[in-house]
Design a protein around this nucleic acid. Structure first.
Lengths: 234, 234
DNA sequence: CCATTCGCTCTTGCATGGCACAGGACGATA
DNA sequence: TATCGTCCTGTGCCATGCAAGAGCGAATGG
């Protein structure tokens, strides 16, 4: 029955389902708006409907799927407005993280950030966009982790999942000259953090997020993938 | 069996369970750390264990309960550190809301805030602490709503639920002179918003949250450095 | 040809029962 | 008396069955 038997990592069945479904949605393996049948998923994972159902319920509270009672479960499709709101939150949280990290002084994450930037410089030099995208992701994650606030971190993760940011970052970096500029902005932020100038670090970080957002929207076709009707862009 | 609950408003059974359990936990009807048995709740609500179970699962992702596999479900007891983190987030989000509201100009929420402050002035005058507590809650809610960002609002609600803030606000206002000072700070924030001075509004709002937090901790005889604050040690 | 209605099927919602594991009580043994 | 092993009870976890609402298409009446 159980075809995916090679995953003994977590004894809980539903935890496995949650992780796998979340991965698929974030990575984009399933199109936004696509229907998710409890029964179909249950058969695919070789389990009963119950854990699948609970997994979907949790993904709903995370904002990744939408359950319409007696109708079906669907992958959430963020509206244009929601994307704007999510970026506003991203700017807010990352800015705060920069300030908090600056206040903490020299902690482990600082070293990791420095190493990250060294590698990022090389990636930009080599014009290795894929590697740089990974490092960008790591940079932001390290920044959040460095804020040393677990609530901030968990809420940040939830927001990024809703944005499916790992997909978007590539689009953003495909703009000509964007990687180089992004790298410079990262350097500036870290520099300000090292100087313990929290206010400036926050301000620059927020500006960086806005720039990143602009680059993303510039590289995105008007109504995005599976765009929603009526929401004309800019 | 089924005590005639006068809540037929929502056809969904589990939605009712979620709402009711959330209300109890936030209001403090159940002590933090208390065990919640699926079976007991199912019998009390006159339903089966399945919807209760799904309700608890959702409350877990909201951070209100903790499910220890094969052991039991318990009301979350925020540690000292978590409380600090929650206040840090509160300060962050409310500050941002003030700035966002200032940028929006004169919207409906502004009028409601002005009316709120007029009533609050009277409540302070009468020394009606209970009424003032309600108005404080409303003030902050209006501020968040005025930011016009649904993501910010939902995350804010989640945080406040974890804090069980509606309980704490009374403690905070029991400090002598705190209501008057709080009222003045609210006036200042709204004034800055009306002047469209977003930066100052954010700054003052953040300071207001910090002051509120200090007043709270001063009136709260919290226990030792390790978690488990005041767990009804009978 | 078009609008309406009936009915079928698909979906989720809820109830129930068996199972496996955690934790403590209790007793046997050194 | 102290310590260890065993059993017993309570809990959440999962599987299965039944029921009810929603949506859609075909049949029907105009």
């Amino acid at each position: 029955m159980n075809r995916a038997k090679s995953e003994p990592k977590n004894g809980s069945v539903q935890a496995r389902v949650i992780a796998e479904m979340r991965r698929r949605i974030i990575k984009g393996d399933i199109d936004p708006g696509a229907p998710l049948s409890e029964l179909a998923l249950a058969e695919e994972f070789g389990v009963s409907r119950t854990p699948v159902r609970e997994a979907l319920k949790q993904l709903q509270t995370e904002g990744l799927v939408e359950i319409r009672p007696r109708v079906g479960t669907f992958v959430t499709t963020p509206s244009r407005r929601e994307i704007t709101e999510l970026f506003e939150m991203k700017e807010l949280l990352e800015g705060a993280a920069a300030r908090l990290l600056a206040r903490r002084g020299r902690v482990a994450e600082i070293d990791l950030l420095e190493r990250n930037l060294r590698e990022a410089d090389e990636a930009v030099e080599r014009d290795d966009r894929e590697r740089y995208a990974e490092l960008v992701q790591e940079f932001h994650d390290l920044l959040i982790a460095g804020a040393d606030n677990s609530k901030l971190e968990s809420h940040y993760r939830m927001l990024m999942n809703q944005l499916a940011y790992s997909r978007l970052v590539n689009t953003s970096l495909s703009q000509p000259g964007r990687p180089l500029q992004s790298d410079r902005e990262h350097h500036l932020v870290l520099e300000l953090i090292l100087e313990k100038d929290g206010d400036s670090a926050e301000q620059v970080m927020r500006e960086h997020v806005r720039a990143s957002r602009r680059a993303l929207l510039a590289g995105l076709p008007l109504s995005g993938p599976n765009g929603r009707p009526g929401t004309a862009g800019s």
